[in-house]
Amino acid sequence: MKNKLFVMSAASGAGKTTLKDLVIKDFPDIKYSISATTRAPREGEVNGVHYFFKTKEEFEKLIKEDGLIEWNEVHGNYYGTPKSFVEKTLAEGNRVLFDLDVFGKVNFDKVYPDATGILILPPNEEELEKRLRGRGTDSEEVIQLRLANAKKEMEFAKTKGKYEYVIINDDLQRAANELREILKKKD
């Protein structure tokens, strides 16, 4: 699976979605993995495009039926990677880019140990807080939770994660170019 599966991880607000959106269009053979989640859709998000939005009961059924490669509870919501989407995409001869939190990546690596890990980091905590506040989508309570979780996630990634690449997202174009170079690698 080397260079067929790419897993990007980052704390909320580090810019992984922006990077993905800038870069993935340059790689028609790479499909973005759509995760399942129990969180409510944000404005403009579409079921089956941005996420597979599930009720808690639907998600728990997927867990029981072994329908997820990995799953975790993050910020009070379930997130997971549906097996069927990944298997279908690989069978079609495509590569897959995943957006997983650092804890999900550890579980994902148990199934696909050769997946390429890419850790996206913000330049510093102050910039991360500025980005989270700039979204204008979260309450103060949620922002504080995301900041606290970000510290834990980044520490976990550095000490227990398996990431072949680290991109510091302090300059969007430079970071996007770094990601493009990683995704160009094929077997």
Rank of each mutant, 00 (worst) to 15 (best):
F53P: 10
I143F: 01
Y163R: 00
I24L: 12
L128R: 01
I143H: 04
E153G: 06
A176G: 09
L132M: 04
E141D: 13
E43A: 13
P82I: 03
E126C: 00
A14N: 03
I69W: 08
A14Q: 08
M154R: 05
E45W: 11
D171Y: 15
P28L: 01
E126A: 08
L172Y: 15
G104M: 10
L172M: 15
H50M: 00
S9A: 07
P28A: 01
V7Y: 14
G136V: 03
G15V: 04
N124V: 00
E87A: 08
H75T: 15
V23Y: 01
D170C: 08
D26A: 13
F53A: 10
Q144G: 09
N107G: 14
A10H: 04
T37D: 06
G136F: 06
T89W: 01
F53I: 08
E164G: 11
I167D: 02
A157R: 03
L90M: 10
T55W: 03
E45N: 06
N107W: 14
T38I: 02
E141M: 10
G44K: 05
A150S: 12
L5S: 04
V23P: 02
R131I: 01
P123W: 00
L132N: 03
P82D: 07
L132V: 07
K130I: 13
I167R: 00
L145T: 15
D29Q: 11
I30G: 11
I168G: 04
L100Y: 02
T18R: 12
Y165Q: 01
L121M: 07
V86A: 09
L68M: 12
G93M: 09
G44A: 01
G117S: 01
V7I: 05
K64P: 08
V23C: 04
V49G: 12
A10C: 03
V102H: 00
E70A: 11
L68H: 10
K186C: 10
F108M: 07
A91Q: 15
F98E: 00
F59E: 07
E43I: 14
K64A: 15
E178I: 00
S12F: 01
E73K: 13
K56S: 09
Y51C: 05
S84C: 11
D170R: 07
L145K: 15
E164T: 03
K186F: 10
P41V: 11
N94R: 15
L22M: 09
N169T: 02
G161N: 04
R95E: 06
G67W: 02
S35W: 06
V74N: 15
L5A: 04
L5G: 05
K61H: 07
G93T: 05
F108E: 03
N72E: 09
T159M: 15
Y163P: 02
S35C: 11
K83Q: 09
R131G: 06
K54N: 12
K64V: 11
I63P: 07
L179K: 05
H75M: 12
G136A: 11
I182C: 08
I34V: 13
G104C: 05
K185F: 09
G44P: 12
